[in-house]
Simulated assay, not measured.
Amino acid sequence: MGLSAKETFAGDTEARRHPPAPGILRAKVRSLAPSMTRSMQRVAETVAADPAACAQLTVTALAHRTGTSEATVVRTARVLGYPGYRDLRLALAALAAQQQAGAAPSVTADIAVTDPLPEVVAKLAQEEQLCLSDTAAQLDTAQLEAAVAALATARRTDVYGIAASALVGQDLTQKLLRIGMLAHCHSDPHLAVTNAVQLRPGDVAIGISHSGSTVDVIEPLRVAFDQGATTVGITSRRDAPIAQYADIVLTTAPGRESELRPAAMSSRTSQLLLVDCLFIGVAQRTYDSAAPALSASYEALTHRHSAAGPRP
Rank of each mutant, 00 (worst) to 15 (best):
A125W: 01
C185V: 12
T68H: 04
L92M: 13
C185G: 03
S266G: 04
R38E: 14
R178T: 08
G281A: 08
I218L: 14
S4A: 07
S213P: 00
L273K: 08
T8D: 10
L176P: 06
A246L: 08
I162C: 14
V47D: 08
D288G: 04
Q271C: 11
D239Y: 06
A5T: 15
R65Q: 15
A10P: 01
I248F: 01
D216Y: 10
E127Q: 15
A97M: 08
D216C: 02
Q56T: 14
R78S: 13
L294D: 04
L25A: 11
V43E: 02
H64W: 01
E299V: 14
A21L: 12
Q174F: 02
A263Y: 00
E119T: 09
T157E: 03
C54L: 04
P19A: 12
L144Q: 09
A147M: 07
A91D: 07
L90Y: 01
R26T: 10
A137R: 06
V29G: 07
A300D: 15
A136D: 08
L273P: 06
N195C: 11
L90F: 03
A196C: 06
R155K: 10
D216L: 04
R42N: 12
G84N: 15
Y82H: 12
C131W: 00
D171C: 11
Y287D: 05
T8C: 12
S213N: 14
T251Q: 06
A154F: 06
P20G: 10
Q99D: 14
P201K: 10
A263S: 15
D288W: 01
L117W: 12
L172E: 04
L130E: 13
T157W: 02
A308Y: 05
A307I: 00
S209E: 07
L221F: 05
